[in-house]
């Protein structure tokens, strides 16, 4: 056994933003390592979307073999996969510490919990991207979907923005889980309505009127619209203006973030009052 003498003195990262960036990075890295450490990751990320996509193709693919309709399906399944992982994974970003026995270690960190959650949520949402990319690959290779985008640049911008809005939504869901006893129930029961409301598989315009306000409040609804506008030729969407979709997306994403940060303060206050988040 060595001794604790002669250790390099601990020096702190300067500047508060420096530390926040460091925490976000560390949380992304740790979450990624934990994700790939468990071989089961392949089920939600590869096998489930594969089956989703196959079903979608066999249901709709035959009736309209036009390239753009197939691309529509690919985008839809990809986004659906992203939603699934966001809702399951992200919302458990901190809840994970409950059963892992690391809640106290996490709560003891010298930084607000929201930054830790943000890093973890970013990776958990990215899991959804892995999933979406895989679906895209199936579409391209197996079903030979023509991949000609209306505007690749705008498509990329819309995709990245949708990714960020999904992360913000995941962060918000994370507080909901921590603040509610029946957290698991809430996320499970949200998945299907959210698939439908954001129009991942169908155009939102076919939704019943009553569901529309809900759909409009979900930032990814607008992200999906923007993605389709930039990808599919002649797509007619809700507002059919790429930048309007993007603006609403941005406003709603910022609102989610603000709300999530406020709710994280409440989570932390609760934790301090009770000394734990274990048995909320």
């Amino acid at each position: 056994m060595g001794s604790l003498d002669d250790l390099t003195p601990g020096k702190r990262t300067e500047g508060l933003l420096g530390h926040k960036g460091q925490v976000i990075k560390a949380c992304v890295v740790l979450t990624a390592k934990l994700f790939f450490a468990d071989p089961q990751w392949i089920i939600p990320s590869i096998i489930a979307p594969f089956i989703f996509t196959l079903v979608a193709f066999f249901l709709f693919g035959g009736q309209a073999a036009s390239g753009s309709f197939l691309l529509y399906l690919v985008l839809g399944s990809g986004l659906m996969g992203m939603w699934g992982t966001t809702i399951y994974g992200s919302s458990n970003s901190i809840g994970f510490d409950r059963w892992n026995g690391t809640m106290e270690a996490t709560l003891a960190a010298p930084i607000p919990l929201s930054w830790i959650a943000l890093g973890r949520v970013l990776f958990n949402t990215f899991e959804g991207v892995i999933n979406a990319l895989f679906i895209l690959a199936i579409g391209l290779v197996w079903f030979q979907v023509g991949f000609s985008l209306v505007s690749p640049g705008l498509f990329l911008l819309a995709s990245v923005s949708t990714f960020l809005s999904l992360s913000a939504f995941g962060l918000l869901m994370c507080t909901v889980i921590l603040l509610s006893r029946k957290g698991g129930f809430i996320t499970n029961s949200m998945e299907i309505p959210v698939y439908i409301a954001t129009g991942t598989m169908f155009p939102v315009s076919i939704l019943p009127l009553a569901a529309l306000p809900f759909a409009f409040l979900l930032a990814p609804t607008w992200g999906i619209e923007a993605i389709r506008l930039s990808a599919l030729p002649g797509y007619v969407g809700l507002v059919t203006n790429y930048w309007t979709d993007m603006a609403i997306l941005a406003v709603e994403t910022v609102a989610y973030l603000a709300l999530a940060f406020v709710l994280f303060k409440r989570v932390e206050a609760y934790a301090k009052r009770n000394g734990t988040l274990e048995e909320y």
Binding site: P9, R12, T13, K25, A26, P110, I116
Partner: peptide, 9 residues
């Protein structure tokens, strides 16, 4: 990283 230790340290 959580404790903000300088990465070079």
């Amino acid at each position: 990283d959580l404790y903000g230790v300088d990465p070079t340290v």
